[in-house]
Nucleic acid binder design. Sequence first.
RNA 1: GGCGGCGUAGCCAAGUGGUAAGGCAACGGAUUGCAAAUCCGUCAUUCCCCGGUUCAAAUCCGGGCGCCGCCUCCA
Length: 477
Amino acid sequence: MTFRLHDSLTRSLRPLDPVEPGVVRMYNCGPTVYGEPHVGNWRSNVCWDVLRRALELSGLRVRQIMNITDVGHLTVDDLADAAGEDKMEVAAKRDRLDAWGVAAKYTALFHEGRRKLNLLDAERYPHATAHVPEMIAHVESLVRSGHAYATPAGNVYFSVASFPGYGKLSGNTVEALDAGARVEVLDEKRAPEDFALWKRDGKHQMQWDSPWGRGFPGWHIECSAMARKYLGDTLDIHTGGEDNAFPHHECEIAQSESLTGKPFSRLWLHTRFLLVDGQKMSKSKGTLYLLRDVEAAGRSMRALRYFLLSTHYRAPLNFTWEALAAAEETVKSLDATVRRLAADPAVADDPALADLLARAGRDFLAALEDDLNVSAALAVVHSVRSELNRRAALSPADFALARERIAAFDRVLGLGLLDAAAPAAPDADAEIQALVDRRESAKRAKDWAEADRIRKDLAARGVRVEDTKQGPKWFRG
RNA sequence: GGCGGCGUAGCCAAGUGGUAAGGCAACGGAUUGCAAAUCCGUCAUUCCCCGGUUCAAAUCCGGGCGCCGCCUCCA
């Protein structure tokens, strides 16, 4: 079976048909590093991470590039006005960070969050500021071919009229935009819908020399230039949030296809926004949650990851603390199953189980290959969980098969199921083990009060003890 | 005003013409010194509302209501 994905451009389910067989070139529109990423940003990052992992499980090699937008959009004025707005910007001002320092700070925070949520490393994270020469070359070429024009003021605009396909992605054709009539009118532009490729602005902190004088690149051009540099003229998959479709991706298509004459990307994928309590996330309502808010609420990053990946990427996902708590319980129950998996040489092989595991592997992959139907894939995972729970112990061969199956699931889910669930070895912590042993003695003496007191003591140290037929097992968390 | 999407149990969420997956929570039973975990069972005659098409609709069509996104730098 081939991988099918919903393409925003054709608004239909399309088979993934890579330019180079077996290799998927995926470009993810990455973070703008002027603010700390919120759970909504992480939702789309997790979606694309799951996609990348699913493609790999499907046997494809993925060349994933994610840009870091660290140029533009921050003027001296913005920085000066930041007081009372965003705490991080206030901090930036206090620390006397300039635009470069702010970008460095939030880039680091982005990568830190990525590790917390167990997102795989992309092949590269190109920074826009490191690719200005490529952007200038791209713009120069567009000017030469008549797709762009420079104004006396030193700005360069893309001439939308020169690209008939404008609007094919978002539906915002020139006529539709005219009808909406909310386009900013600038006298120096030939047409109101023309967009900036290069801008001159004396107040901008980040500036570079160019054939049009000192200035900075327009927002859209970085993705066109960097995607082309690292992945070639035609991408297999280009992703972004639903808000990126217009103007960002629409403009990228115009710039890139005008230059190369080739389709910019074979598939366009967009994630729906995450809502909070059924409403748009809002800073003023206090619903713009960051990873540390989730941590402060006592929720694990694994639960957050499970929650964020459990809903289809093209459906709105409603964040509630109740739903996150449910995700936490679900992850715990998966851990419990892995923890109680046991091999017993006295148990005979169970051919039915082997069949079931093999079928589950196929069904899991088939669900993901069907436009990343994670919900259906998770249903398969839970059916395996339930089958394993029903069996007390497995033959060594079945035990190995079960672990293998779970490992394969986890290659996509990224929850660290096999690691997180492992009970601590008896000698992992002598002090804890001594307490566990003392509790056992108390239990044998039927001194339940003492046994419970020790359990409470252990709980205070973040250790849980479970009594099982194989004796007490303890673990953290 | 223009363009697009969504509305399934207490909560999260699959299913897009053939008679409602899965998870969480809840409830009853088993097991347990107590827990935890686990097992068995229960939990939507019905898919926002009203019409229509069809042998058959959560799924298609029309109309409402509600929510969400984009319309030049927000994932």
